[in-house]
């Protein structure tokens, strides 16, 4: 199953979405990312029981931070899929890329380069 997904996505592996700190996401934007997408296990199927639920709450919180800084809440998203569902992963990657492309570049990036 060779599925293609957009090449401008940088994948960062974490043991669980519960490991994703608010700062990781903020730093990603500081470093010029245009969008951040968290992909966790299906709800109820977390290896660490509630890691993905906590990540979901953190995503909600970070959306409020991005909104107040003027970066925009819609640049962050979280999806829950099964680890076996490569097709859905590729789909989400395309969806997210399209969405961020439509939003344009991260407004904090003007001076990064």
């Amino acid at each position: 199953m060779r599925l293609s997904y957009p090449t401008n996505i940088k994948i960062i592996k974490v043991p669980c979405t519960g490991r994703v700190d608010i700062l990781f996401i903020l730093k990603a934007f500081e470093n010029g990312a245009d969008g951040v997408c968290l992909i966790g296990c299906l709800e109820g199927e977390c290896h660490f029981l509630t890691g993905n639920i906590r990540a979901k709450k953190r995503v909600e919180y970070i959306k409020s931070l991005l909104e107040e800084t003027g970066i925009g809440a819609e640049r962050v998203a979280m999806y829950n899929i099964s680890a076996a569902d490569g097709r859905r992963f590729a789909e989400i990657a395309r969806e997210m890329t399209e969405k961020i492309k439509a939003l344009g570049p991260n407004p904090a990036k003007k001076q990064v380069e």
Binding site: L26, K27, E30, G70, P107, A108, V112
Partner: peptide
């Protein structure tokens, strides 16, 4: 320390945006 880091990041992002 955690909240300091978050606020600092937010301030930087906002300043970057507004150049």
């Amino acid at each position: 320390a955690k909240e300091v880091a978050v606020l600092a990041s937010e301030i930087r992002l906002s300043r970057l945006k507004n150049i």
